[in-house]
Design a protein around this nucleic acid. Structure first.
Lengths: 357, 357
DNA sequence: TTGAAAGCGTTACCAT
DNA sequence: ATGGTAACGCTTTCAA
């Protein structure tokens, strides 16, 4: 059953001829130890190949030097880069990173959180799968457990790091409208029923009600841009995939493009939508920007490898990760009172995929 | 210092009016408990919001229900997909995944491994940064600690999962040669001095000596293909970036393309090299396959988004992860004796980026 | 400055 | 089937 995990502190103490207290103080760097004693203990420990047991340390502290991450899917470029940011900050702090994937499924998210809690992680960074179903997160926060929300806002009273999705999409769509486009389509995930009620969202985001999911917020920005420009929104041009998958995005885009009410421009609401939409554009042999203007979301290398290079709304993904982790460690170490919100800058990068009409 | 982490098993036992043993058996599902007793304990635990402490469980077992991963960089598409595979299998087994990045640096790799060992993970999946500097891995294996090597072979006597890189590159280059190409260039990482001595590698890989790094193995396959086809290898056409970065790959490719000895075909040795090389091709306004034939390595979505679509050597990345994790769990659970090697199939996918001369 | 001992939350063992 | 208790490896009192 047990794995022999090498010499324990007690073994080292015994071999060094000191008490466990002294050995612990020498090796752990806490309390007072005479320099010569410390040197001796260190030497003995070294020679025995002593390795501290983080579990035992964690038992005492009530938590380990490990943080948890619950993201939708590390395989996606967005999350893998964000996770890298989190993990880098964790390492700098001597912490490990326990990684889980929710696949945008609240049930899996709850299970993952439960596992992390059982593992006594010091805190978690979460990208909530469902902005409206966050009981488990609220419970954790209510217990005084450090939680940071990344990429998505919810009603949970926790720190959060994200971009202003409404403004980001507002800016991009406004650019499209200024180029003379009057039939601008948007492709977004809009997974929940609530997200699908996007007709109400433009106003809702302004009110202090329930926060919007990123895709809903982006549709809201799209609508606001239209309203401000005095251009009516054609419901046919707002397309929802209902799931975070490139395949669904391709299918939806194909349908959009073959419909009678063809758009002159298309904007995607995230990286996965972008790649799926562009695949449809390629498959349908549509020429960008001659037949259709296209704007992607999340700047990835491939956008500048195709011809023409694609205009995009860029967000500082790595930094979302590092900032989230930093907020988390502040909460773990100090006693931060109120939830903080970090809004990072987005950037609209105009390249060659938008035509003027 | 301590975080209150909710009710303990003792608390539940007390509240339920049973001993800790019984409470543990009821909640942990081990040993014998009368159904009615179990139900009662479960109910009490539920009402108290009891959450088992994995640290305490780990203290007893000598290890936690967590596995460690040391990869080069989760941010890379290759590793993020592999990690997803590992993490999926871990979840299925009720295990967590502790993730670390080595950035292809042996020192960071050793530190990461040390952290994982201190955390008493049940085992690790590693993609060794330096195939020739693996003392720390050997030490872990010698201690009876479960280790699985992914993507890369070393002299460490541990399980491993990878493709046959020599054969994969051999097949792709042979295809190029059959298309009439006589000046085929290869872009590979070749980080270590040993890797750079690629002139000797073709033979070395056949012998039972030190295993090759993936990039060295791929160069070996490249050379073997040339030898078998009776085409001399021009050393100028074997390009090394010395680091795992797209920027370096772009720079090296640019230099290759502007050199006097221009190739008629170029093949990249991994996903990062592929994107870097293609960036150079785009920047230099080189037409594929008219001016240059190009073959990528690792099938990623963007390869079929550019025109023409790029031919590629595909490897089953997700499966490398799942298989590695599966081997690891077999070792964790049972008592597997000898190191096993799983060689997964690669696939050469011909698309439109190779011209016949 | 140092040593002895308590205690963290479990599981395993031994009585009962 | 059940309860009590030792033990895991460490940090932290408390005395000395």
């Amino acid at each position: 059953m047990r794995r022999p995990s090498g010499p324990s502190l007690t073994d080292v103490a015994k071999a060094a001829g000191v008490g466990t207290g002294t050995a612990g103080r020498a090796l752990g760097g806490y309390g007072k130890v005479r320099p010569s004693t410390r040197a001796h203990v260190l030497a003995v420990a070294e020679s025995m190949g002593y390795r501290p047991n983080r579990l035992a340390q964690g038992m005492i502290a009530g938590r380990t030097r490990t943080i948890g991450v619950v993201c939708a899917d590390v395989e996606s470029p967005f999350f893998s880069r964000m996770v890298r940011g989190i993990s880098d900050v964790a390492s700098e702090n001597g912490y490990g990173t326990l990684l889980t994937n929710s696949d945008e499924n609240v049930v899996l998210e709850r299970d993952a959180l439960e596992m992390l809690l059982e593992s006594r992680v010091a805190g978690v960074v979460v990208t909530p799968a469902d902005v409206h179903n966050v009981k488990h997160l609220k419970a954790a926060v209510a217990d005084g457990f450090p939680v940071v929300l990344a990429d998505r806002l919810t009603s949970v009273k926790a720190d959060s790091v994200l971009i202003d999705s409404v403004a980001a999409m507002h800016e991009a769509v406004t650019a499209l409208l200024k180029h003379g486009h009057r039939r601008v389509a948007i492709l977004a995930e809009l997974r929940s029923e609530r997200d699908l009620a996007w007709q109400d969202e433009a106003g809702r985001s302004r009110r202090s009600g329930t926060p919007l999911s990123p895709s809903a917020a982006r549709v809201a920005g799209y609508i606001q841009a239209h309203i401000e420009a005095g251009v009516p929104v054609d419901p046919e041009l707002v397309r929802a995939t209902r799931e975070y998958s490139a395949e669904a995005a391709t299918a939806e885009t194909l349908e959009l493009l073959s419909s009678s009410c063809a758009p002159t421009a298309l904007i995607a609401a995230d990286d996965v939508m972008s790649i799926g939409a562009y695949r449809a554009i390629v498959d349908a042999r549509i020429r960008v920007p001659r037949d259709l203007s296209f704007v992607a979301f999340d700047d990835l290398p491939w956008l500048t490898l195709v011809k023409p290079q694609l205009s995009v709304v860029r967000q500082p993904v790595y930094e979302i990760g590092t900032r989230a982790a930093t907020l988390l460690f502040e909460r773990i170490n100090g006693n931060v009172a109120k939830p903080r919100r970090v809004v990072l800058p987005y950037e609209f990068i105009a390249r060659g995929s938008v035509a003027s009409l």
